[in-house]
Design a protein around this nucleic acid. Structure first.
Lengths: 341, 341
DNA sequence: TTGAAAGCGCTACCAC
DNA sequence: GTGGTAGCGCTTTCAA
């Protein structure tokens, strides 16, 4: 019958011929303290009525929910979806439902999202994606998160060190530095760098690490070959075109601060008639899935994205009081996009 | 102060010196029916106390939530994440929070997820991803969804025609058929097909359409060149290896029923020393982002995934009683992985 | 073991 | 306009 209202616990209790309290006990934790027969009747009634407990009601009665919230910067980006994969995996293992919101790299949007999410009283809020610095949403964000935590919530940051909360920290600096060393080891001497705006700490760290790695060999990056672009595939394309325009003669390898950009770079080069890996080498960072499917396969720095998600959730569930930092190390993977020369 | 309890509406009312009812009015819809001054006091109190309305409490009091639920088969897969992107976009535009669960292609898991999700009383439940047929979870799933809908929920299916609910229907058959025609037009005559298990309707439809398209030209697909594999990148790799083992001499082009498989195929071919597009052409289906980044760029059938997500959400919000079907058409895109011959 | 009843935080109806 | 108050669906004492 259409328009029928949802069955409530009361209905179940009535049909089963027991009190609501008993029905609650059965359909919940303490099944043990109820007579077999009653339990059976309740279960039967629940099944018959297609009863599902109202999670909101439970939440309000119990004072706690079974949700975790995840804020990403774009579902489309493999970087975030890998992390999201890890998070949901861990969450579901812990019996939590995860709600996901997309901030699209907008700090304002992010703040607003956190506010809304907070209303759901999730057990944890996990924020992922480098924050764009220099915006005036920092203070309100901290305040919001602080209030949330003080009310018993658990905050976890992924790869952003700017706030006083649990953090899963990716070794961007170290990874990039290792990468630089490895590339020098392969015989490269002249580099171009494609990076994101200076506001993105992740990008900055990777640049700094890379530059430092080169400096160890007394190699400098020519300023002319440093181009700034959007932190995305499109950004990578644009950057590559810009590099071509500036005349790429001076650079043997371009390092893009993440794989999606690097892949964009490769594609754009190809469109410009340059063969990646042959005419110009390319390296990225993250080791997202597609990195091995492009051709030549992309040299990059592995970040165990899925694990990062798992760690974040673990951190969220371990109710530690003091902000903990879980470091995640990164690893250079040399592939065909940077042949020995 | 740590351990401090969350501020409630009562607290706000008390601090503002008004009744709870008034506070509720201010912090909610009907701001208009309250004196300027009182409104201001309430707002101030709310800000001071860092008040956030308890969504669960609201939900229970109002009898409706502001959530939508999305069930996908894997966040990692660009197919799903593109759809998820569209869905979240539309949801956020409508002021809804989206809850996402991952079924990992397990019908049992899916059923369980729907059960749990139902407890949240979301405004809509969107199920995406071809169902694996021939499992005994079909009936209970329908029952579950029916109960949900009867209680006022809205169910939307994406690309699965097996259940009596709103559906966003992707023209898999037609797209594959067009693709076949186009490929014949390019001069191809001998084809291999990489498909998923027969239980996946999406895969079956694409195969059938493809075969039908060829039949129009009196071309048959040699059974020896039809291989079945997991509906994933890995599956594609395995299938390609299998094809190589069988001796690929007979086939000029392999059609994989989706892009992730096709990309796996290309990579595996390359690993086997075959140059995709040159030694053997490859075509896929979906036109996921990475399709243009592999080399040679992948010929495929465009499915407006993001739009599919938008449509699904629209369908979910338009409370139509009768199950509606929104068709989404597909479009062949010829790229370099299938050069004219 | 069971049931009555008091909330949980909020909304909405109904008087004033 | 505003405040009292009766719930929303569930959990959880507290007695019985």
């Amino acid at each position: 019958m259409s328009g029928e209202r949802k069955a409530t616990l009361r209905d179940v209790a009535r049909v089963a011929g027991v009190s609501q309290a008993t029905a609650s006990r059965v359909l919940n934790g303490s099944i043990r303290n109820v007579q077999q027969e009653n339990a059976a009747r309740v279960l039967a009634a629940a099944a018959e009525l297609d009863y599902t407990p109202h999670l909101s009601a439970q939440a309000i009665a119990r004072g706690s929910t079974s949700t975790a919230a995840l804020v990403v910067n774009g579902v489309d980006d493999p970087y975030f979806s890998s992390i999201a994969g890890g998070v949901t995996q861990a969450a579901e293992a812990a019996g939590l439902i995860v709600t996901m919101a997309v901030a699209d790299r907008s700090p304002e949007r992010e703040l607003q999202i956190v506010r809304t999410l907070r209303g759901m009283r999730p057990r944890a809020i996990i924020l992922t994606g480098s924050r764009i610095e220099g915006t005036d949403t920092r203070a309100p964000l901290i305040e919001e998160l602080d209030a949330y935590r003080e009310a018993g919530g658990s905050v976890v940051l992924i790869s952003r060190h700017d706030l006083p909360f649990h953090t899963v920290s990716i070794d961007n600096y170290g990874g990039a530095r290792q990468l630089a060393r490895a590339l020098v080891g392969l015989g490269y001497r002249r580099f171009a760098v494609v990076r994101a705006g200076a506001g993105l700490k992740t990008s900055r760290d990777r640049c700094d690490g890379f530059v430092e790695g080169l400096r160890e060999f007394n190699i400098d990056v020519d300023e002319r070959y440093v181009v700034e672009a959007e932190f995305s595939r499109r950004g990578g394309c644009a950057a590559a075109r810009e590099l071509v325009r500036r005349g790429l003669a001076g650079a043997e390898l371009v390092f893009a601060v993440n794989d999606v950009m690097a892949i964009g770079v490769m594609t754009a080069f190809r469109d410009a008639g340059l063969v990646p890996g042959q005419d110009v080498a390319v390296a990225g960072f993250d080791d997202i899935g597609p990195a091995v499917d492009v051709h030549p396969a992309l040299t990059t720095v592995t970040v165990p994205l899925n694990q990062v998600g798992l760690f974040a959730m673990e951190l969220a569930l371990s109710d530690d009081d003091a902000p903990r930092i879980v470091p995640v190390s990164t690893n250079v993977v040399l592939r065909d996009s940077t042949p020995r020369r």
